[in-house]
Nucleic acid binder design. Structure first.
Length: 197
DNA sequence: CCCTGATTCGC
DNA sequence: GCGAATCAGG
């Protein structure tokens, strides 16, 4: 595959939209994300850092290249704009809920049985709960079979009813849950002192 | 372990 | 110019 004009255009477009190199590569087809990144650099649209000629030459490890030493770092940090629409708009979370967080949790997980590492719902950030509510709306609702090594395995709904599924969103490294669920899953550990055994 | 982009260098 | 291999972070 070669970098035809339209392919380059798509590349520019997607890169401009903040798409990742791997996504772009997948979309284009026939190229790897490395190819995309390489092209991006060649096109000179890697970062919005343009103008500063001198490149700080980040690392010099196994490079037996004898090059003239750079005169000076000369890297004026320019305030850059980051078009990153945080999908964290206002969530209808009760701002005035001092201690009734437990009820909120109940809404999320109606079931009351063999729940995952459900914290004691004591000191969970209301934000985390709101987040969970949010993401559950966009959950992929995977069945038990669809779960893979890196899909969120957070159960949603009542296992005793057909309205039961798993979050299914991309889980974070290693963890069994996605970002949001990790937040409410294991985070507490505050007043859990001894276990009297 | 999964991902991200950045850089190098043989082709 | 191209991109795999590698590096460097998250």
């Amino acid at each position: 595959m070669s970098w035809t004009d339209d392919r380059v255009e798509l590349l520019k477009k997607m890169w401009g939209e903040g798409q990742s190199a791997s996504q772009i590569a997948k979309e284009l087809g026939g190229v790897t994300r490395n190819a995309v990144i390489g092209k991006v650099h060649r096109l000179g649209l890697s970062n919005r850092n343009q103008g500063t000629a001198a490149k700080p030459a980040a690392k010099e490890k196994a490079a037996p290249v004898a090059k003239a030493a750079p005169s000076k770092p000369a890297a004026a940090p320019q305030p850059e704009k980051k078009p990153e629409p945080k999908t964290e708009a206002a969530v209808p979370v009760s701002a005035d809920r001092p201690a009734n967080v437990t009820h909120l949790r109940k809404q999320i997980v109606p079931a009351g049985q063999p729940l995952p590492p459900q914290p004691s719902a004591n000191e969970i950030s209301p934000e985390a709960l709101a987040k969970v509510n949010e993401i559950e709306k966009s959950a992929k609702k995977l069945g038990l079979m669809e779960l893979t090594e890196r899909t969120c395995k957070w159960p949603i709904g009542d296992p005793a009813t057909p309205d039961f599924w798993f979050c299914g969103l991309p889980s974070q490294q290693g963890k069994p849950y996605c970002e949001a669920h990790v937040g409410v899953a294991f985070q507490p550990m505050s007043s859990r002192r001894d276990r009297r055994r």
